[in-house]
């Protein structure tokens, strides 16, 4: 029982990471109908920024803040400079190629600047487990709480602020939003900035568990895809729930069924199964296209 609970809790911790990345993906998907293949590598690069700040002696939470801000601005710049022109002038294939190009550039830049050697990343949470329990480490608990806090802030932002409302409007109906004076283009850029910032938080939370290297986020991105699809790629709440489900499933399957070597294949099967049997996911909207 104790190992089972332990597996569930650490599944929830990684699930929170998947949920964050899935949320970032959904955010961009809702606004632009694009799947950001570079989301993982952007988060990885943000984590490297945090790592070099902490190494330079900046206190953890200040480095955290700076990283999130830099990522936010970086995300906006990427949208405005690289993605938008591609969407304007190219087909879907071209856009996917641009995403892959961004992915490759970030991956190689990280390797170039910070080398490919694996680095350990500090955790802001105490080493000692809370109340000395054996089920969940402090970092895992901290990661879960951080995820929930991020979700809460986002919910508040989208639900209670005029800017959040404008962003939702721009995603839902760009033409009408433009007519009532919302600057749709900037809302998209803002969405990218937010997605990059969420990704940065996810990266900093996962790095202490899996260690920092340029390929750190590749597997995580696959799980986040699985989570987003499972929950419904146009439903933020569904994708968050999907993230937690995938995290727990992954750990339980790894512990009791297949062993850990085939973990990524489980994600692959999950993705293909969801896409083939229930493309809308658990909570997504059914889209009907007229021809």
């Amino acid at each position: 029982m104790s190992t089972f609970l332990h597996q569930v809790f650490s599944g929830l911790a990684t699930g929170g990471i998947y949920a964050s990345v899935a949320l970032a993906l959904v955010m961009i998907y809702q606004a632009t109908n694009l799947i950001n293949f570079a989301q993982g590598e952007m988060a990885m690069f943000s984590t490297y920024i945090a790592w070099s700040l902490i190494n330079a002696g900046v206190p953890y939470w200040l480095a955290f803040l700076i990283t999130v801000t830099v990522s936010f601005i970086g995300g906006m710049v990427i949208e405005r400079v690289i993605i938008r022109p591609a969407v304007k002038r190219s087909s879907l294939l071209g856009v996917v190629i641009v995403f892959i190009g961004v992915l490759v550039i970030f991956n190689s830049l990280a390797g170039w600047i910070f080398s490919y050697t694996i680095k350990s990343f500090p955790s802001p949470f105490p080493e000692q487990a809370l109340f000395n329990n054996t089920y969940v480490s402090s970092h895992e608990l901290g990661a879960i709480i951080t995820t929930l806090v991020v979700l809460g802030i986002l919910y508040g932002f989208f639900r209670f602020t005029p800017l959040g409302l404008a962003m939702r409007a721009a995603a839902q109906n760009p033409v009408s939003s433009r007519l009532v004076g919302i600057r749709v283009g900037w809302m998209l850029a803002l969405g990218w900035g937010l997605a990059a910032a969420i990704g940065a938080v996810a990266g900093m939370m996962v790095a202490p568990m899996v260690y920092l290297d340029p390929n750190m986020m590749q597997g995580i991105l696959i799980y986040a895809f699985a989570a987003a699809l499972l929950g419904g790629i146009d439903n933020p709440w569904g994708s968050v729930l999907g993230g937690f489900i995938v995290g727990v499933l992954e750990n339980l399957i790894g512990a009791y069924l297949f062993g850990t070597e085939l973990k990524l294949s489980v994600a692959l099967i999950l993705i293909v199964a969801v896409l083939v049997f229930k493309p809308t996911g658990l909570f997504g909207k059914v889209l009907v296209t007229r021809v």
Partner: peptide, 28 residues
């Protein structure tokens, strides 16, 4: 199954296939 996947979704599924391939080849 790819017949049912359009555009992005096919890219996504094949992306996952590419990432999972080395693991599958190493399977005991």
């Amino acid at each position: 199954p790819a017949l049912r996947l359009e555009g992005h979704y096919l890219a996504l599924a094949t992306f996952a296939l590419a990432v999972a391939t080395p693991q599958l080849l190493k399977y005991k």
